[in-house]
Write a protein that binds this DNA or RNA. Structure first.
Ligand code: ZN
Ligand code: ZN
Ligand code: ZN
Ligand code: ZN
Lengths: 132, 132
DNA sequence: TTATAAATGTTATATTATTACATAACGTTA
DNA sequence: TAACGTTATGTAATAATATAACATTTATAA
């Protein structure tokens, strides 16, 4: 079970927005959307994003500089993330595949370095875009 | 075998710099370093970087907004990249592991989407930093 | 209560990346 | 070689992303 985090006011406003959108949102798009709720400065957005990433409620899609709500809310996998990204329509979805996550969580390379975290981004064309 | 690409003047200057540094370099650090060679504007740097990424001579470390020379120069894996990143000293190295790359290149999830490309970033502490 | 940590508000600024437009060099083939 | 299309370059301006610094407020807990 994931620890319950009581989100603060700004964190809740921003999480709800991202969660409802269902797709990756960029920081300044978020800012624009929450200005009517009193969040006026980039830093307010980035601070909430940082916290939400830290507790695993959202993830950053690094290749897109965008943030998406975790689609595996019942489990704590913020340190083991994998995404599927369509290079045509930019649809993003979080991959939840236990074999993959086991394989990667246990991965060791020649260096003997043990990894505490990973992020994987797959790219391709989604079904819709492939059939066009 | 990788196709030989004849790098242009700017591409060569910038590739040589990144390659010699042996570590990830940021675009504006590159710019600063090549100004004495006549490359004066960000766009000149970004254009060369784009091309070098496209042909697989360098890779972008997405989580760091930095660029590193490909450490697998004899093979074409610019579309299947994996990196090991130390969160303390920021040392980055490219992982070359055929099992891993086969596993990921053949990965399919429930969506049936087939991926033409992936990027994987592992995080942890390197040996040096772990023993501190 | 009182101390401590966490979150907020605000302004300014740093960092990363692209648009737009003009010109030059390169590679191909007529 | 001449003409053509493609790739690369130069330059200025600006957009997009992210952080620093500082003051204040709110929540948590000893
Ligand atoms: Zn998740
Ligand atoms: Zn698509
Ligand atoms: Zn490589
Ligand atoms: Zn280290």
């Amino acid at each position: 079970m994931q620890k319950e985090h009581n989100l603060s006011k700004n964190q809740k406003i921003i999480f709800d927005l991202i969660d409802k959108s269902g797709e990756p949102m960029k920081a300044y798009a978020i800012l624009f959307n929450v200005q009517k709720k009193g969040i006026k400065a980039p830093l307010q957005v980035y601070r909430a994003l940082d916290k939400l990433v830290e507790i695993g409620k959202i993830h950053k899609i690094e290749s897109r500089n965008a943030f998406i709500a975790c689609q595996n809310s019942s489990c704590q996998i913020s340190k083991a993330t994998a995404f599927s990204i369509c290079e045509s329509c930019e649809n993003v979805s979080e991959i939840s595949n236990s074999k993959l996550s086991k394989y990667l969580s246990n991965f060791e390379d020649d260096s003997g370095m043990r990894y505490s975290k990973y992020n994987l981004e797959f790219f391709g064309l989604c079904k819709k875009c492939k059939s066009k």
